[in-house]
C-alpha cells in the first residue's frame, strides 16, 4: 500500500506540474527565444551518461522502452 501511495503522489505531482505550467498557454516560441530550451540539460532524450544506467535497468526490470531503455537486442542474462 505504501508503494502505491508514493507512486500516486509522484504521478499527481508530475501531472500537477505539467498542467499548471501548461496552463500558462502554449505559445509559439521563436528561435531567438529558445536559449533556455536549447540548454544541454533541457534535452527530451536520454543523455549519453545515462546509457549504462538504462541498460542495467532494462536487465533488472521487466519493463523497458518508451524513451527509457532499449526495446530489443543484447541479452539481459547477466
Amino acid at each position: 500500500m505504501k508503494k502505491t501511495r508514493i507512486l500516486k503522489l509522484m504521478c499527481a505531482c508530475c501531472i500537477f506540474v505539467i498542467t499548471t505550467l501548461s496552463a500558462s498557454s502554449c505559445t509559439t516560441v521563436k528561435a531567438y527565444q529558445k536559449a533556455k530550451l536549447n540548454d544541454a540539460e533541457m534535452t527530451l532524450g536520454n543523455r549519453k551518461v545515462e546509457k549504462t544506467e538504462l541498460s542495467f535497468q532494462s536487465y533488472r526490470e521487466g519493463a523497458s522502452g518508451a524513451n527509457a531503455g532499449k526495446s530489443g537486442g543484447g541479452c539481459g542474462c547477466n
Binding site: 500558462s24 505559445t27 516560441v29 530550451l37 527530451l44 524513451n67 526495446s71
Partner: peptide, 24 residues
C-alpha cells in the same frame, strides 16, 4: 526476434517548458 514501432511527439509549450509523449 524483436519488432518495435516507436512513436513520439514533442512540443514546446513556452520559453521554459517542453514536453514529449512516447508510445512503443
Amino acid at each position: 526476434n524483436t519488432y518495435a514501432a516507436s512513436l513520439s511527439y514533442s512540443q514546446i509549450i513556452n520559453q521554459n517548458l517542453q514536453v514529449a509523449f512516447f508510445a512503443d
